[in-house]
Amino acid sequence: MVRLTKTGTILAYVFLTIYALIIVVPFTMMVMNSFKSMRELFLKPFSFPSSFKFDNFSKAWKFANIHVGYRNSLLVAGATVIIVVLLASMFAYMVSKYDFSFRRGVFLYTMLGLALPARLAVIPIFILLRNMNLTNSLAGLVLIYSSINLPFSIFILKNFIDAVPNELCEAARIDGASVGYIYYKLVLPLTKPALSIVAIVTFVNVWNDFFFPLILINDRSKATITLAMSMFFGEYSIQWPLLFAGLTLSIAPTVILFLIFSRFFIAGMTQGAIK
């Protein structure tokens, strides 16, 4: 592997430390500023808070409707992950392991979706959901997110299922296993790593999205966490300590989960994007 000289190593550490600080300091400042009063934030935006105003958090929690945002984001992302994992794995299994007419055509048709940025279709999506009475509803969001995340998930899963030996499935078949039984008892357990990549990528994509809620949701009680934060910023635009507290609350669960499971997340997200 690459070997650095002594000075090279020192320079590398200096450079990487500066970069790490550029990432960590803003997060730290955000948290510290969440505890300050307006006056203190103005006078000493850099310093450690002189006293902790926890009250900023309770206010931000209430005004930004953060619990509602969490709940909605969790519901939408959770439901989407379940639908995507189930439908994409069923589809990939059929296309990978069985012969039927249009098999290749059907697969390539879904692969087209890898290249289509779904955001560009948002006007017809909006109209379609309006006709189905599903605008301003979490179910509408779930339908859209599930559909958008299918092509990528099918792609990943098919590659993994292709690697499951055909002989294994054929042997099970001869022993009398049904198509559904092979899927459930053989293929799914053998493709667990791929299923978890699909689940992570889908969950993070949905959790982080802002565009579709912005256009499809206008009711506070239906806002996802990103939309809830956006509404909060619109209403409390200069109450800075509150805004910092809101931001801290809105990202805390993600950051904590990520720090605990970072290996898992990083492997899933980077493999997912490049594969």
Binding site: M90, Y98, T110, L116, P124, S146
Partner: peptide
């Protein structure tokens, strides 16, 4: 492997319908 057409439809239709309706058609 060979498979009955009804199974094919059962396994691929749900994904195909969602994808066609909410991605391709729009």
């Amino acid at each position: 492997m060979r498979v009955k057409a009804s199974y094919v439809l059962l396994f691929i239709l749900p994904a195909l319908v969602l994808y066609s309706l909410f991605v391709v058609y729009p």
